[in-house]
Amino acid sequence: MTRKNRLLKLVALGAYLFLYLPLFIVIVYSFNDSKLNAEWVGFTFKWYDKLFQNREMLSAAANSLIIATVSAAVATVLGTLAGMAMHQYRLKLLPGLVLAPIAMPDILMGVSLLLFFIMLNMSLGLISITLAHITFCIGFVALSVQARMTAIDRSLTEAARDLGATPWQCFRKITLPLLAPGIIAGALMAFTLSIDDFVITFFVAGVGSSTLPLQIYSMVKIAVTPEVNAISTLLMVLTLILITLTARLYPGALRS
């Protein structure tokens, strides 16, 4: 039962082109031996060389990795708790608190956290960025875990309890393994969102510390140079590897 509709396929093809052509252009120009992103001059790796000699960029990359690892870890724990709670109990406040940060425009969280940190006399830097990243990551983990919870057969945990397992044993041996794909998907999402975040970081970073997106922003603000293409290409490759790894290790994790 296939409905052949050429117009539909044509528009869809156009949409895919629209999605991929810009990224393709970025990748191609990262190997172009010209300062301008215009004419193709010749193949080169020099933009990558330049990138790896750029101290600021390297330290920003290190910052990004540290922040993303810590905030993904903390947000995964808190988000998993929230996701399980939202599935098991009829709560009013928690779902609202989990969903609101996702529903609001990023800039609002950025400026309100800036006011909050300044009010507490906290110096802005890696810690304030990490605390902010945890805040916006919790919701995504919680939703991923909650979706996975609904797929778990309740009779399994009930059977375990009937056979004398303690609540902890039941969680450790039944719920957690079954929940793993949801947790992994949530953690991956949190990690990527943290590495990717520009808007909120922009407000809570202060002057001393930079992350990759902040570094890219300041470079792009001044001039469009192929070095940005090189770092962009590397970031795309990193994300692709992460996604492929997750898909290999936990088939089904990406679907949720």
Partner: peptide, 14 residues
């Protein structure tokens, strides 16, 4: 999943 700024940057080139 690719970086948000990279996607804006692509259009700056275009």
């Amino acid at each position: 999943w690719s970086n948000f700024l990279v996607r804006i940057y692509a259009w700056m080139i275009i």
